[in-house]
Design a protein around this nucleic acid. Structure first.
Lengths: 131, 131
DNA sequence: AATTTATAATTGTATATACAATTATAATTG
DNA sequence: CAATTATAATTGTATATACAATTATAAATT
């Protein structure tokens, strides 16, 4: 089980990394950026929940996206609000394309129905383990 | 899919790390060590295939296990043979216990049949992606 | 209102893993 | 058999992620 889940994750990672090369972002950076585009001003805390990553990891991801001028952070009390830049907005269509590419790639390998079924199953698992 | 597989892997990782605490090893180190116990003299190349990890990663894992006096490497031409030490052999029963604990823990959460079914499914996926 | 407690974010540090380059040896071929 | 190519392992370096500690602010309690 241990190796199966890890191996699967690494393989998915590779497919994803490949799909996101077009916009020169790692999958994590890309998904974070998309969340910020969908909800401008979103807080790290919220991103952490959505992405199932620790807050410290989120900070690191945001830092890099800020360097790339794709996000800006605006402090607001103890919170931080994260906004996409116009550069990020301009990138949006390409990113949508990457999402589609990624889906195509893995469902090509796994088969559409099977991969859909599998996603549901994985999510059920992950939710159960969330407790 | 990307986050589902990753999140699942990370959660499994946590359960595994916990189960292996008793012998003060990470899951990867532990599984490598068990392979060496089952096949004394095994080569890094072989370990890499079994564990689905890159050779460089295997080298790093072995180094640490060597520091802990659980493995020794004996060069043989361009190959390296990896042998468990007596300390490793002494640890074996405890390690078996950890394997059992790990299985119990995740099947407690996921349910026995469901987790068995799920493993099969994951392995099928991973194999397909292996191409 | 002052003090305590809780929360959000960040920083410092550590780990697992990978990729690319290198080294050492073996196998093959001209 | 000398030169080339292939293979196994290692090393140098980079990345993603996490945990623990810290900082800054807000909320709650006395």
């Amino acid at each position: 089980m241990y190796f199966a889940t890890n191996a699967l994750a690494r393989k998915m990672e590779k497919i994803a990394v490949n799909a996101w090369k077009k916009v020169d972002l790692s999958p994590s950076h890309a998904y974070l950026l998309m969340l910020a585009l969908d909800a401008p001003g979103i807080q790290p805390m919220k991103l952490s929940e959505e992405l199932h990553l620790e807050p410290s990891t989120i900070t690191r991801l945001i830092e890099k996206l800020e360097e790339k001028k794709l996000l800006v952070r605006i402090a607001d009390g103890k919170q931080t609000n994260v906004y996409p830049t116009s550069k990020a907005r301009a990138l949006r269509p390409k990113m949508k394309q990457c999402v589609a590419d990624f889906y195509d790639k893995y469902s090509l390998v796994l088969g559409k129905e099977e991969s859909d079924r599998f996603i549901k199953s994985i999510n059920r698992m992950a939710d159960k383990l969330a407790v």
